[in-house]
């Protein structure tokens, strides 16, 4: 089979994204770019209210409802002085009347300087970024990507550990469908992590991601047990939801659901610097008694979403770290 490397086509796709400054996936970002965005987020944490975007209009288009993510983006925009237009519920848009995504995006591009969009279809944000004359910020595209969540996770890890390098990161729960753990794994490749995967067999980390780890030289260890000894070395304990509807065998769900519940006594041997993260909302993965423990950090993590998204919005609009 003959392979002709048509480099120019890939360069072209890349160039369009670079030029319009969209934030679609974190997978392509260099270590430098990630550190730059985190430095920007830190500035916003220091002083969240800045009148940087008083002449800007930001659209938030939620083709799939997600109150949490939308409020976070809209608060970020408001605290930067921008005005916000958009919709929170796809039922009120013409999408349901058969309008294409392209037509909606082109229409809104006439009004807004940047479009934050969440969509139930995979690749929707990437496609929008290829056709829109304004930058697109991906606020989640189906099971595919949720890069602003990843940036806030990275920021939280940096904030709690003082570094992103050489950390032991434990991922617990649904590692098969959990897009946040997949994106985090991809983004951490620059920082020499050691991952520990703790999941029921049915929701184990997919082979493609384990292969990715091997290709990238990322160390990983798999566990099915979840107890004080297993997590004693953790710097970060990243919990995710184990959802009933993910199981083909409901008996299996009943067997494992409590095994991946984090209880207070399990922290007995935890490192002092260890922090527990969770993308929220939680269902029953973390016992409420843990909320007051100094290792618990998921509520502060959620707050960091604001600063990470302020950085993402400014960067998409070409506002630099020096200008904020």
């Amino acid at each position: 089979m003959h392979i002709l490397d048509v480099v120019s086509e890939n360069v072209c796709i890349f160039a369009v994204n670079m030029e319009n400054r969209s934030f679609v996936t974190i997978a392509d970002h260099s270590r430098e770019k990630i550190e730059y965005l985190l430095a920007m987020a830190r500035e916003f944490e220091r002083k969240p209210n800045r009148d940087l975007l008083s002449k800007h209009v930001i659209a938030t288009l939620f083709f799939e409802p997600s109150t949490r993510t939308r409020l976070s983006f809209e608060t970020a925009a408001n605290r930067l002085g921008a005005r916000v237009i958009g919709f929170a519920d796809p039922k009120v848009t013409s999408g349901t009347k058969g309008e294409t995504l392209k037509d909606t995006i082109m229409m809104v591009s006439n009004y807004a300087d940047v479009i934050v969009m969440r969509h139930y279809l995979e690749g929707a944000a990437l496609y929008a970024s290829e056709i829109a004359p304004v930058p697109i910020i991906n606020a989640g595209d189906g099971a595919n990507q949720h890069p602003s969540q990843t940036l806030l996770d990275l920021y939280t890890i940096y904030q709690t550990q003082g570094t992103l390098d050489n950390l032991n990161i434990f991922l617990v729960g649904d590692l098969k469908y959990g897009r946040t753990v997949h994106s985090l794994l991809t983004a951490m490749r620059h920082f020499n992590p050691t991952f520990h995967f703790i999941a029921p067999e049915e929701l184990a980390m997919p082979d493609s991601y384990k292969q990715y780890c091997r290709d990238q030289g990322i160390r990983y260890v798999e566990h099915q047990e979840f107890d004080a000894d297993v997590i004693a070395d953790a710097d970060i304990l990243y919990m995710t939801r184990v959802q009933r509807e993910r199981f083909t065998d409901l008996m299996e769900y009943e067997r494992v659901k409590d095994r991946y519940l984090l209880k207070l006594p399990m922290l007995a041997k935890a490192r002092e610097n260890m922090r527990i993260l969770h993308p929220l909302p939680r269902v029953n993965e973390i016992e409420y008694a843990i909320d007051d423990d100094p290792h618990a950090y998921y509520f502060q993590q959620a707050r960091n979403g604001l600063f990470a998204r302020q950085a993402i919005i400014c960067d998409a609009l070409g506002i630099t770290l020096e200008e904020i």
Binding site: V6, T100, L101, K102, E122
Partner: peptide, 27 residues
């Protein structure tokens, strides 16, 4: 002339994922 496999194929391959944007937009 042998057939040459290009690095990028446009409008040729069908995506098997029904939740992919390319199966839901005229593109």
């Amino acid at each position: 002339k042998p057939v040459i496999m290009p690095a990028t194929l446009r409008g040729i391959v069908h995506c098997p994922n029904p939740k992919c944007i390319c199966n839901n937009e005229p593109m």
